[in-house]
Simulated scan of single mutants.
Amino acid sequence: MRNIKLIVEYDGTAYAGWQIQPNGLTIQEVMEEALGRMLGEPAKLRSSGRTDAGVHARGMVACFRTGKGMPLRAFREGLNTQLPEDIAVRDACEVPLEFNPRADAVSKHYRYTLLLDRFRSPLVRHTSWRVPGPVNVPAMEAAAAGFIGEHDFLAFQGARCAAKTTIRRINSIDLVREGELLHLDINGSGFLKNMVRIMAGTLVDVGLGRRTAEDIRRLLLEGDRPDAGITAPPQGLCLMEVFYPEESLKMPVPISPSLGGRG
């Protein structure tokens, strides 16, 4: 039995999210059907997490087990021939059977993209949230620093979140300007439902002068969700990369049979 790890990129515009559900077509469903056709047997994907309807990914990690001896390129080039244009496998490798894409992850990098423009842009309408501005970016940077570290993110948790704890660690937040686009690059140990989108909505309020950096610190201490910003639209969010300890990805070295004679 083999455990195959895939890096998946997708445009989530047409899908009801990653995870299979009864009320719409999902990326997991499309990929499992494509895998089934290629392998000639059912395939079950385990992922590093979920993305909501309309959210994108450049580096979703998903694994499946198979007894097939296909070369790794078949799980990339071959699978891509079975997938629609808005889903693609970027890489495939074999990992230990015990590798778990969700439990073994040590951090994730999400990017939320804002379009700071008075006029709408058809070209980036599916990958950004337009904020007419003017926006005070330095004030947003100062406020974003308040998220760094380990905090209780109860105020930044979406409804019906099943997480056992709301304590999360944010390792870094960088605001990167690219023309009229402003990227919020957030790296953390893990994220609650809608957490990044609520953080983005709150930082936009800071940029528009509706909140201050002190409000961020207060929200983290008081945990009052209604007092935080709105949940930013899904299309601006993209899962960029998932990080793992190197040892969790290393395949065991085969044990050579003994070459000695009988003792």
Rank of each mutant, 00 (worst) to 15 (best):
L39I: 06
F156Q: 04
I27W: 05
D11C: 11
L203C: 04
L116D: 02
L219E: 07
V242A: 08
A14M: 11
N194F: 08
L114K: 07
R197N: 13
G207N: 05
A143V: 09
M70V: 09
E85I: 12
P257W: 14
I87H: 03
E178P: 06
E247Y: 09
A232S: 08
R111C: 11
N100W: 09
D104W: 05
K164P: 15
E178K: 09
G207K: 03
I4Y: 00
S47Q: 12
S121V: 01
G54P: 02
M240N: 11
A143K: 03
L239G: 05
E41L: 06
D224T: 07
P84W: 04
N136S: 14
F64G: 00
V204M: 06
D224Y: 02
G78C: 02
I148D: 00
L25V: 15
R177P: 11
N187P: 15
G229F: 01
V106E: 11
I20Y: 06
V253Q: 03
R76V: 07
D174H: 15
L35I: 06
T26P: 13
R169P: 13
R210L: 11
F153W: 01
R160I: 15
P122Y: 11
D117H: 12
P254T: 04
C63Q: 06
F156T: 01
A200I: 06
I173E: 01
G78K: 01
E222K: 14
L25R: 15
Q19V: 05
V196Q: 01
N80C: 01
N23H: 09
D104M: 09
N194V: 06
G36C: 12
